[in-house]
Amino acid sequence: MKELSLNVLDIAENSAKARAKLIEILITEKENVLTLVIRDDGCGMEEEFLKNVTDPFTTTRTTRAVGMGLPLLKLEAEQTEGYMEIRSVSEKVDSEHHGTEVKAVFHTDHIDFTPPGDMVSSLVTLIQGHPDIDFLFRYETEKGEAECDTREIREVLGEDVSLAEYEVISWIEENLREQFTLI
């Protein structure tokens, strides 16, 4: 991918597909290390699937037998001498505490580091496409942090106004862009 933000969008789409109610996207960028965590409370993966999940020929797609999402993220992390790890608990194993966490670590001073890109745009795209899912987004640098928690926004808006409304989406986008100018 051209930007890490596109990987974030792609991986979080998996969480949405796993029927997550809350998707957390947590990024910290400190001392030349960028850590990305995408955590959800979706259905999780069974052990057998998890073992092979970074193999491109393992996929939930029904339109093609090849899935490149996780393999791409893994490659992008490893080419900076970082790594990616996945933990997952299937709902079939634990019906209360299930979900998936993808963690990728990058060395930002490595020549092959994929730039973060437009994280705000990815988050806004996710909310537009999945207005019923909650998102906690946090981007932390040494200077401070930018955060968006749709649970807080939902509380203000009440049940009648969808997060996918253009005015709401625009508010979220502008609010986050302002926060990003400070970090």
């Binding site: 596109l6 792609d10 791409l72 795209t125 537009q128 005015e167």
Partner: peptide, 23 residues
């Protein structure tokens, strides 16, 4: 289409353009 293939090919700005223009 917003799967890996779409996203990698540039679907994000296309989607956001439709959302903005329609509104």
């Amino acid at each position: 289409g917003m799967a890996t293939c779409g996203i990698a090919a540039g679907a994000r700005p296309v989607l956001n353009e439709f959302v903005r223009d329609v509104a």
